[in-house]
């Protein structure tokens, strides 16, 4: 496959995943804003939507554009339908679509059609109206649109290089996002001890899970009330949950192995780094995480993800 096309596909995977994550983060934050009365009593300057800006590393960008005051509607617009700034869902989908337009012959017609329609719809006045009338419905629509794209990719692309580059981008991005959600969310959470349901800290922890669409899956897994250490372990180390870091890294390993399946004995740096991270995640357990300190561990993990991204570029996109 052409390096340029492979790179486009990788970025389509990343941008669509990022758009979906923004939608999910905002959804959770918005729910929380609506429940804010109780929240405000305990910590008066808590603003879940502002937290979303921080997780996405664009709080400064927002304040430069809109000023220091965080109006709920403005934050929502900034992260959803804002046409020029680099952080909105619309911009992400636009970039994904530009990449797709430049490599349409590698995508299936169905997958392209979905991405193109989603982006075009995003630019309409109807999309703005939908956002204004019900932000939650709007975000749900984005999530579904992105999921449909993923589903069409799954259902219509042969398991060849094109597919694997899409998956590589998608899962690397997802691992990154989960890492950032955890890294940002942890310091604000009260101590890591067992919680009574209904308390504010229990709400924090379930929101953390919801930000990763993991709430129900975790409850099924844990059969229990929410235990902070268990939550962290679940989101980092679970083997079978599609939004755990381990799951994502394992998928990246699979993609890279398929991409490099050419009989050459020498593995690329990308493959080595991924393989190493994957086995580390496999043999770690929750106690090791606590022992190492969660924050330092998460920082290290994010650094590794960035190094993997660089290595992917060197291995496949700058081959000559």
């Amino acid at each position: 496959m052409l390096s340029r096309v492979a790179e486009n596909l990788y970025w389509i995977g990343r941008y669509v995943e990022r758009a979906e994550n923004v939608a999910r983060l905002l959804e959770v934050a918005y729910h929380l804003e609506l429940d804010a009365a109780e929240l405000r009593e305990e910590s008066p300057d808590a603003s879940p939507l502002a937290d979303a800006l921080s997780v996405l590393a664009c709080r400064d960008a927002f304040q430069q554009r809109a000023g220091a005051v965080l109006e709920r509607e403005q934050v929502l617009e900034f992260l959803t339908i804002e046409p020029v700034e680099g952080h909105s869902i619309r911009v992400m989908l636009g970039r994904a679509r530009d990449n797709a337009r430049a490599s349409r012959e590698a995508l299936s017609a169905d997958a392209w059609d979905q991405l193109n329609s989603l982006f075009l719809e995003m630019r309409t006045s109807r999309a703005r109206l939908r956002l204004q009338q019900s932000p939650l419905r709007f975000l749900e629509w984005v999530k579904r649109g992105c999921a449909l794209f993923g589903g069409l990719v799954d259902a219509t692309l042969p398991r060849a290089e094109a597919y694997h580059f899409l998956q590589l981008g998608r899962h690397l991005e997802r691992a990154n996002q989960i890492g950032r959600i955890l890294q940002f969310g942890l310091p604000r959470l009260p101590a890591l001890e067992a919680l009574d349901p209904g308390t504010l800290s229990a709400m924090h922890w379930s929101n953390l899970l919801k930000s990763c669409s993991a709430h129900e899956a975790y409850l099924q897994h844990a059969h229990d009330q929410i235990d902070p250490v268990g939550v962290i372990g679940f989101l980092i180390l679970d083997e079978g949950f599609p939004r755990s870091i381990r799951f994502c890294i394992d998928r990246c390993v699979e993609s890279v192995e398929s991409i490099e399946d050419d009989g050459s004995p020498q593995a690329s740096d990308a493959r080595r780094l991924l393989g190493r991270l994957s086995s580390e995640l496999r043999y770690l357990d929750q106690r090791d995480l606590l022992q190492r300190g969660l924050q330092p561990y998460l920082v290290g993990l994010l650094v590794t993800c960035h190094r993997i991204g660089d290595a992917v570029h060197l291995a496949y996109f700058q081959t000559t």
Binding site: M1, L2, S3, E161, Y316, F317, T319
Partner: peptide, 8 residues
């Protein structure tokens, strides 16, 4: 030659 993910 074209640049591909597996070389020229």
């Amino acid at each position: 030659f074209m640049r591909t993910t597996r070389g020229p």
